[in-house]
């Protein structure tokens, strides 16, 4: 048991001997990608709602335009990085 415990301790502590590459902070890009996904999902829903008659064409046009504007802004920021 003692040998086992020592082996486990060595294995657990091994990574500490040399510094690993720090986890890359990708939070901004991640956030933008997430927003892009969320907008595209919203647009899909919007289209489905219109196609199934839950949203009038006028409402659809207004809302979709707003989402597209937001999506464009997000894509520009993603490209700019």
């Amino acid at each position: 048991m003692v040998v086992l415990a020592a082996a486990a301790a060595l294995w657990v502590l091994a990574p500490l001997r040399r510094p690993a590459v720090a986890a890359e902070e990708e939070t901004e890009r991640e956030g933008l990608l997430r927003e892009r996904d969320s907008i595209s999902r919203s647009l899909r829903d919007l289209e489905l709602d219109r196609a199934t008659g839950k949203l009038s064409d006028a409402d659809y046009a207004v809302l979709a335009a707003r989402y597209r504007a937001r999506a464009l802004a997000v894509l520009r920021r993603l490209d700019a990085r």
Partner: peptide, 24 residues
């Protein structure tokens, strides 16, 4: 499946009445 980039945004004006496929 993760939303692929090409799905993301139809250009404004082009798709208002464009083809819609359920589930894109």
């Amino acid at each position: 499946r993760r939303a692929a980039p090409q799905v993301a945004v139809p250009a404004p004006g082009v798709s208002a009445g464009g083809a819609w496929s359920p589930g894109g």
